[in-house]
Design a protein around this nucleic acid. Structure first.
Length: 775
DNA sequence: CAGTGAGCGAGCTTCCGCTTGACTT
């Protein structure tokens, strides 16, 4: 099936190297005989990890090494390259891709004569054959721009992190991207803590055009809100018994356009909002879809669709919904610093509305299919009706609006979700036919106290959105960056219970205003990002000393320089030198100034003992302390979940010391209740039993504790399936099924083996060749 | 694998971006 111009005799042996193995497989099919397509699995070399991996004296000369896990790939590519007549470097067409091509050329020892650099924007036979006919050389300006990026990140990361080890705690980290992500979280938390909610009275009435005859209702809201309850009451009183009529009716038509196809960032956001997926879940599932050939590449910042895909969308939309639903659109990427080496994320075959795959894969595929299709569909036409209702009794007007979809267009299959989960207030989906001056009967009227909303906490997905807006980070690093600042203990992804708050409601009832105080729950958080004390400490330290690095515009600024290096207008190590001189000076200064990074905060005095109560970060995390450091009787307690040094009150700190507490005794042994690292627990007979969310260690009673102890003992007794005491081997029932335990190590049991039937010989064999599980 | 909270002081930790497996007690 191959075209004659590419037959074996003409071209000899050809080796094509791409970045991803899934891509390699597809391309090999298109090229056929004489072409072997292999993958480099991304970058093959990186800066040495010893010291900086950069010789600053020699103009920031990088010391590149083949990474340990890439040695196999590199040696395989080397031997294939030796046999090949031509090596085609087909890595992505962006800064990183160009660098990969150059590193391959250097590492494989390819000479210019037999090396060709090619790029293609879509994986179709035409595009690939066209690329092969138009080869070029490796663009060294672009490679040097990547080198500048790499060296800058290494300098920042490997000079800032050690300052933290010395001043705060070992193993901490800082970097151009992660430190900004942390800053966003810490600053947002402070905004939330300092936010003072204001309340306003909102007045809502329900009107009916013909008294009690029909059930058609118009819900309308007064065009003014009031700070004072008395003012709201006054309005309600004035409206009592008043005659209302329609003052105006306005009709407006508006269009809504579909959102562009998915990029990594928008896919992560929508999968979180619509499917409740975490970032890592989305990326893992998308990877599966990509490897099975269902979707295009999932790490992209491009909203571009190939002409092939646009054609397929037009055909499928016309078939499924009719010609009037199709509208061909080309989207332009607006994101800062986008490199657009790939297409948008879309189904490889748009005619496949559904696929055979796992449950998560199916759901994510359906989302991608709908979004891609919607992006090629017609605008929706919305008819908006605005009615105002007035009375001679007050100067204000009541306003009612209704949206009616005249033509659904793309809304037929896709509605984009919003970040804030504020529910839309009752809207009138259908307004009855009404006329100006028509009389309206007031059915109900009420005033409700509504509080202003605090700024929303970031979720993983909304943090990615913010980072992308700032041009910080890349599609391949959004999820790992957030994982890093969680692993460092800077932030947590957590749920928090809401608090109760009272609000007032006034209602007009038979001509009189009746008021009551009601209670609502507010501020509950699910899967949101919260800073931890150590994160706040590290952030403040970096903002104070290295504000320019965590400036929200820093990355955008250096990206401009990288672009100019790529254009050949600047020399890469000049750019680095200019940055490094003042940066390194500040590093040295900061190391010299020994400053107390961990000053304790005094909360007040313990009324019981008269001793000082303080909070600080200890060796094992944040703690509260009663009594000063010289006090031999001083007491410590770890802070609980959600408590921060910055915000904890004296009362909250004192409460911590209510635990551990003795619940009573059972079979002559004492039961102690407390809160540990894994949540609340009771301790009995030397063992720990988790008591779960439903029990509070401060109030748990003896009966409940005994029940928990008994059920725990029963579970423990069922844990041991079999034992070989002489060898110190046990076969146990664990969370993931049966496993073998020898000493402190665990071993797997292959599927299909009945653990009860295992004899010593096979068990020993399993231990010997069976994969040891870590830890 | 939980309740601690000082300690002799070797050698280690760490960045961002490109890619997939190996792995889960």
């Amino acid at each position: 099936m191959q075209p004659s111009r590419f037959n074996v005799e003409d071209m000899g042996e050809n080796l094509v190297i791409v970045e991803s193995p899934a891509k390699a497989k597809t391309i090999e099919k298109f090229l056929g005989n004489g072409y072997q397509v292999k993958s480099s699995f991304g970058h093959i070399r990186d800066l040495s990890k010893k010291n900086l991996g950069i010789d600053i004296e020699k103009g920031f000369l990088p010391d590149y090494l083949v990474s340990e896990d890439k040695k196999k790939v590199v040696s395989e590519l080397k031997s294939l390259a030796k046999k090949a007549d031509i090596v085609w470097l087909a890595s992505d067409e962006d800064r990183e891709g160009e660098a990969i091509a150059w590193h391959l050329k250097e590492t494989l020892g390819l000479d210019d004569k037999k090396t060709k650099r090619i790029v293609f924007h879509e994986i179709t036979k035409d595009a690939i054959l066209n690329a092969i006919e138009n080869p070029r050389c490796v663009d060294m300006n672009l490679v040097m721009a990547q080198q500048a990026r790499r060296v800058l990140d290494r300098l920042v990361g490997f000079e800032l992190s050690p300052i933290l080890w010395k001043k705060v705690k070992p193993k901490l980290s800082a970097g151009r991207v992660q430190s900004v992500a942390l800053r966003l979280i810490v600053e947002r938390e402070r905004d939330i803590q300092s936010f003072a909610a204001k309340s306003l009275f909102r007045i809502e009435g329900v009107f009916n055009p013909d008294g009690a005859k029909t059930s058609v209702k118009v819900a309308a809201e007064l065009d003014e809100k009031f700070e004072k309850e008395e003012k709201a009451r006054e309005i309600l009183e004035q409206c009592s018994g008043a005659r209302f009529k329609i003052v105006s009716i306005e009709e407006k038509e508006s269009k809504r356009t579909p959102p562009p196809p998915f990029t990594t960032s928008t896919l992560q956001q929508e999968a979180a909002r619509k499917l409740g997926f975490s970032l890592s879940q989305t990326m893992r599932t998308a990877q599966n879809l990509y490897e099975s050939g269902f979707i295009t590449y999932m790490r992209t910042d491009s909203v571009n669709l190939s002409t092939l895909a646009i054609g397929a969308a037009k055909k499928t939309i016309t078939e499924l919904y009719g010609k009037e639903y199709s509208k061909t659109r080309q989207y332009a990427t607006k994101t800062k610093g986008a490199q657009e080496a790939h297409e948008a994320i879309r189904p490889t075959y748009l005619s496949n509305q559904e696929i055979e795959a796992g449950a998560q894969e199916k759901k994510l595929y359906a989302l991608i299919w709908k979004r891609t299709m919607a992006s090629q569909m017609a605008d929706a036409t919305i008819q908006k009706t605005e009615i105002s209702i007035g009375t001679a009794a007050i100067k204000n007007l009541f306003l009612a609006t209704a949206d009616r979809v005249k033509f659904d267009g793309f809304l037929k299959i896709y509605i984009e979700s919003k970040d804030d989960d504020s529910t839309d207030e009752e809207t009138n989906m259908l307004l009855p036919v009404l006329a100006v001056n028509q009389e309206m009967h007031m059915q109900t009227l009420k005033a409700t106290e509504k509080f202003s909303q605090k700024p929303p906490r970031y979720s993983e997905a909304s943090l990615v959105k913010k980072l992308e807006e700032l041009g910080i980070g890349r599609p391949s690093t959004y999820a790992p960056t957030i994982s890093t600042i969680i692993t460092r203990g800077y932030i947590v992804k957590d749920n928090r219970a809401g608090q109760e708050r009272q609000f007032r409601e006034l209602r007009l009832d038979k001509g009189a205003v009746v008021s009551k105080t009601l209670t609502e729950t507010w501020g509950a958080e699910k899967n949101k990002l919260f800073p931890e004390d150590i994160g706040i400490l590290v952030n403040d330290f970096i903002v104070e000393n290295f504000g320019s690095i965590v400036d929200y515009g820093f990355t955008a600024k250096v990206e401009e320089d990288f672009d100019r290096i790529a254009e050949g207008e600047l020399v890469w190590n000049d750019v680095i030198a200019e940055f490094y001189k003042p940066f390194h000076k500040k590093v040295e200064e900061t190391l010299l100034i020994s400053r107390p990074t961990n000053a304790e905060k005094v909360l007040g005095t313990d009324p019981k003992s008269g001793k000082t109560v303080s909070v600080r970060i200890g060796r094992f995390g944040p703690l509260a302390q009663i009594g000063d450091s010289e006090d031999p009787e001083k007491k410590f307690m770890s802070l609980g979940k959600g408590q921060l040094i910055e915000t904890i009150t004296l009362d909250e700190a004192l409460k911590l010391f209510d635990l551990p507490r003795s619940v009573g005794s059972y079979k002559e042994k004492e039961i102690i209740a407390a809160i540990g690292r894994f949540g609340p627990y009771i301790k009995y007979n030397g063992g720990f039993i988790s008591i779960g969310k439903d029990n509070d260690p401060r109030t748990i009673d003896l009966d409940t504790s005994i029940r928990l102890i008994e059920s725990h003992a029963k579970k423990e007794s069922e844990k041991l399936i079999k034992g070989f005491p002489d060898e110190g081997i046990e076969i146990l029932n664990g969370r993931f099924g049966a496993y073998i335990k020898k000493g402190k190590e665990n071993f797997k049991i292959p599927k299909g083996t009945d653990p009860k039937e295992l004899d010593l010989e096979t068990t020993l064999k399993l231990i010997e060749n069976g994969g040891k599980s870590k830890k």
